[in-house]
Design a protein around this nucleic acid. Structure first.
Lengths: 148, 148
DNA sequence: CATATACATTTGTATATACAATTGTTGTAC
DNA sequence: GTACAACAATTGTATATACAAATGTATATG
């Protein structure tokens, strides 16, 4: 991906500004590819992340604060995100016995099953996005990103 | 920024998946910092980018397709984005004489003036985001991002 | 020149997200 | 035990964005 070509400019972009723009362009591409990969399952990237977090809980239910903490992109409104997953039958929700302010959110078997399919789609998307990278380069990239 | 800490997981994340997540987290941070930097001017990042493109035109008016081509994040609806900038008095719009299907969008003096202020705010934001990077490292980062 | 097609923008509508205010619950100080 | 603050989730509202359909304009074809 060439920055100047992508945003159709002939100007010389200062290095710092170029780096920021570059990261945004890459993120846009990532989002596009992943959103496409998830389209057949009719879940958004955010919803997919919630499912993944719930599976990571290994049966232990999660509440909204926990979900929010662990999400890659924090949302101001996790309630409605969960609402959508409930409608689809992928998660369940009930109020916590020990602390009735909290809710307990769990992934259903249907949710687990569809998540397995999505794993494959996601793996393909990742492979596609990163096919030009060696392991060495990915390590290098991660190291640089740590500086943020 | 530590990925595992940020999304509160103890698991080992596969390298490719970790790279994608890492990029998303970085982009989230960038967005947050920049959105904050632009808040005093009451323009969104998208609107700022339109203003910057228009300035780059050096007086030559732009039409919607041109704007869309050059935007970092492509939008499905540039009309309404421009609407908002017109309301604020930062840009002007009139239908093109030679081809009445097209519109001519230009930045106003008021728009240019405020853009100068925003330049400073943006430069600060960039410096803040990238303060841990050497020039060498930024070049390395850009080179890696080219692989996308 | 009448019709069809392509083009550029605008409008309509549904969904997504951000932010603020509200509701219900728990714990604590008096 | 009543009043108050802190907590967790939900609801309301405004704005943002995606996608599809509609409008108006220009160009090509017979």
């Amino acid at each position: 991906m060439n920055v100047e070509e992508t945003i159709k400019t002939e100007k010389i972009i200062p290095l710092k500004q170029r780096s920021i723009i570059h990261l945004s362009l890459v993120e846009n591409k990532i989002n596009e590819v992943i959103t496409n990969a998830l389209k057949p399952y009719e879940v958004s990237l955010q919803q997919f992340n919630v499912l993944r977090i719930l599976r990571g809980q290994k049966g232990k239910p999660a509440n909204l604060s926990t979900l929010n903490e662990r999400m890659v992109t924090k949302m101001s409104n996790t309630t409605r995100l969960v609402d959508k997953l409930i409608t689809k039958g992928f998660v369940g929700r009930e109020t916590c016995e020990s602390n009735r302010r909290k809710v307990e959110i769990t992934i259903t078997n249907k949710g687990k099953a569809i998540l397995l399919d999505m794993d494959n789609a996601m793996k393909n998307a990742e492979d596609m996005l990163l096919d030009k990278f060696t392991t060495e380069e990915l390590n290098q990239l991660n190291k640089l990103l740590d500086k943020f």
